[in-house]
Design a protein around this nucleic acid. Sequence first.
DNA 1: CATAAGAGTGAGCTGCTGCTCATGTTCGTC
DNA 2: GACGAACATGAGCAGCAGCTCACTCTTATG
Lengths: 210, 210
Amino acid sequence: MPRAPLRPRKAPRQQRAVDTRRRLLDAAAHVFAEFGYARGTTNRIAEAAGHSIGSLYQYFPSKDAILVELATEHVHEGFAAVQRRLADGLPDSLPAKVLLCVRATLDSHRGSPELHRVLFEEALRPPELLHLLRGSEATVVGAVAELLAAEPAVRRTDLGLAARMVVATVESLVHRFIGWGRPEDTDRFEAELTAMLVQYLSTPDPAPAN
Amino acid sequence: MPRAPLRPRKAPRQQRAVDTRRRLLDAAAHVFAEFGYARGTTNRIAEAAGHSIGSLYQYFPSKDAILVELATEHVHEGFAAVQRRLADGLPDSLPAKVLLCVRATLDSHRGSPELHRVLFEEALRPPELLHLLRGSEATVVGAVAELLAAEPAVRRTDLGLAARMVVATVESLVHRFIGWGRPEDTDRFEAELTAMLVQYLSTPDPAPAN
DNA sequence: CATAAGAGTGAGCTGCTGCTCATGTTCGTC
DNA sequence: GACGAACATGAGCAGCAGCTCACTCTTATG
């Protein structure tokens, strides 16, 4: 399993090549979601895409490269979704803002929770993936920290720490809920998680013991 | 990769066989932690244990069986550690109780966070592992729910839900912190997480908007 | 139409995986 | 010390993984 460069060895120039590349990527998403990374073989991906294994290696230099590409797309889509939600305007109250974050995170997991699991938990060996993850996490934490700074209801002193706590909590619990919870409990879960975070944020720092 | 029964094909009867089995298991823990499950090969495990591959298959019917055994041990050790902590007596205040849970969870992750990740995130394909996980989680949630019920400071009405939220939050955030945080920030993290949970638990259910 | 480059193919190579089994070594028991 | 059972060995097998490459088909362009 030699490490190969992750950039495509050939860029598609005709439309059908673009389509082929897309079909391969979509098939990879399905195959990884269904079989996991180790058992999601490149031959299976090519077959699921309705193409030969040769075509796959025309556009992706290695199996890892497909994974990284998929993860990159997923992250970018997540950011785009948040932008779209923010286009309607940022709500006023702290609970509403927190709820917005929770819903945005729920959205980005809903599509294919299994794929999400594979991308960001099972197969985080390729260094490029780790970089991507850390980078996007840092971006999100930064944005949340700014959001908190502009919100008078927030009483925490260390906003960087608070932002990291919020992001980690939302990300982790949403992930767990999508995986194990029932869809009809979503409203309940949203409310519960939002309540927890709002309480945390609006409590002064040296938490008074009981 | 045919599915084989997970029980040992031969029980050790002499002391040296017991030792061999232990060495193999310990080596597996190291190898899985270092290489992950897919690349943590049985040959590598045997080599790391200083035994031949044949010996490995005397005591474990398959690679999956080793994983499941390792996970089972890890879970049992976790329970035992909590029992030990509780032997000193259950503290009075809610914050102290929550802090105890947080510390117990920190303990069980500290040993080898990478192994923990492999066992409970990367390689959760074998059905036996899933059963183990769900079972132990249910046990923990049940215990926490009872603990909450006996605590007057808790104002949540749905204690089952609250218990699930607490367990999920502690488990997830501790895991994240161990993986990414710096050891010298542990006290800070403990306090922050405890504060968050205590605030959540001691707030009445229909969270008043701001 | 000619033609060159782009796109697509799939048999098959290399390497490594989980695992077997025929054989050798050590132990407990008499 | 003899002898059977328990223990340990490791060359090697079957199978499949990622990936290559010599080849064919399609398309854009003159």
